[in-house]
């Protein structure tokens, strides 16, 4: 469907990752207002409950903050975004190494390939 989510991993985690990457990649700029939970749910074609859970998780990490009546906003704290960016990069690198290992390519060779 719209967001190409895998159905064998928790949906809410995938949504969190997806919004994280949207923020990191600059689709949502610091201080931008996020669409409402319902709008996001419809866009992603997931249940509003799951989207709600994901948004709560994003708030917990500190990537977004909510103003009671106005909705949710992307944090203006650049450091926070950078931290998430690094985390994501690390995760992707690890994923790369894991896959290389599965193919029987060791760490050094993988590095050389890069």
């Amino acid at each position: 469907m719209s967001w190409n989510l895998d159905s064998d991993r928790p949906i809410f985690l995938q949504i969190v990752e997806r919004i994280e990457s949207d923020i990191v990649s600059g689709k949502y700029l610091p201080g931008d207002k996020l669409p409402s939970v319902r709008e996001l749910a419809v866009e992603a074609a997931v249940n509003p409950n799951t989207m709600q859970k994901a948004c709560t998780e994003l708030e917990r990490i500190g990537l977004v903050y909510s103003q009671r009546t106005n909705g949710r906003f992307v944090t203006e704290d650049k450091k926070q975004i950078d931290r998430i960016r690094k985390e994501m990069a690390k995760r992707t690198a690890q994923e790369y190494l894991r896959k290389m290992k599965e193919m029987g390519i060791d760490r050094d060779e993988a590095m050389r390939l890069l």
């Binding site: 319902r38 749910a41 997931v46």
Partner: peptide
């Protein structure tokens, strides 16, 4: 369905289409 479901409401969905719907099911 997603757009119009009222906030505090529950939904019971019977279907054969498991792959298409599994993302929206609790």
């Amino acid at each position: 369905m997603l757009q119009n479901m009222s906030e505090e409401a529950s939904l019971l969905l019977s279907t054969h289409h498991i792959q298409e719907t599994e993302q929206i099911i609790d």
